[in-house]
Design a protein around this nucleic acid. Sequence first.
DNA 1: GAAGGATCTGACCGATCGGTCAGCTACTCT
DNA 2: AGAGTAGCTGACCGATCGGTCAGATCCTTC
Lengths: 182, 182
Amino acid sequence: MSTQEELRVIALAEFTSAGYSATSLQRIAELAGVSKSSVLYHFASKEHLLEAAISPAIDQMEMVLAPLETIGNLDDRQRFLEDFVDFLLMYRLEVNMFINQGPSLVDVPVIERASALVVRLAQFFSDNSQSLEENMRFGIALGGAAYMLCTASTYGLEFPADETRAALISIMSELLVPISAR
Amino acid sequence: MSTQEELRVIALAEFTSAGYSATSLQRIAELAGVSKSSVLYHFASKEHLLEAAISPAIDQMEMVLAPLETIGNLDDRQRFLEDFVDFLLMYRLEVNMFINQGPSLVDVPVIERASALVVRLAQFFSDNSQSLEENMRFGIALGGAAYMLCTASTYGLEFPADETRAALISIMSELLVPISAR
DNA sequence: GAAGGATCTGACCGATCGGTCAGCTACTCT
DNA sequence: AGAGTAGCTGACCGATCGGTCAGATCCTTC
């Protein structure tokens, strides 16, 4: 792994666990075994490092959400949900960071891009009804999944990946089933 | 409202929205219209201010959780859930902060006290079965509710309190109904 | 009016922050 | 061998951080 990749991975882990503003470039450099100057050689600024750390996840999320508006029957919906859960599992650190720290990281372009995606997703899952309970079901599913996938591991809970995936799909399906099919 | 109370309220709001480490004492002082020295007169340190800001919520949570082990039938369980939702609504800022930033604020005594409460709550709601899905249902309910109650308002969603309460109780009941009654 | 405690402030401290810059090293290409 | 470039570093910068301290101000109590 190149130094640049290593820095990106370390930065992502630290930003997620300790928080963006609580993580210093000095600490990232120490964890990577290089100097702070070296970090700033590979990434023009701390914000650029943040951008590099999470934009792959946002790119992937854009791809997963691409077919959103073409979803028709419940099978389409179920397939999409599985893809989305796979996305959550693959990029759990990035998602957790966006969910938890996104609101305090406005003005960072990639964060705004992600926010737009979440709004689009919310509008789809709320069945265009914009009812309170529909919106809350979506919010709980998204926020809850993100919480479970990352924060909860702080409490020492560690689960096999495939079981986690199955349970997550099951619970989210239950939460996000449209009114018409409930 | 005394200066001390005002500082506590402002600090809580800022810690929640911007993050603990991203919030400077200088900023809290400015928002309150006093000097930084005055903040440090009322609270011995930034950490003491954090403690003062969230410990009322943790005290209340301890009271709400007191009857946890005596819960018998499903009616008890439902009543407890309603009390807990009321607690979430009353202390949404504190809960959101603990959920989102708790893991990065270890070594703060009040945070550890709250963590112990969450573990106790999780053990109850997971039906002592410790199965993966039970634990995940609890985690999604708790993390999701916290997310909806605070973070989601960033997206401009604002709901009447009583409707929010009813929807939250409904969704959480659904998520936390024990296996035996499903 | 004197005394005393509560409240508040500006000046100041060392540490750390993100970031700049000149220069060192090692490798590639001609 | 020489030129150029990518990778990396230590020294340094101004700004801001949390925190200390001596003293000003205000209000109560005698």
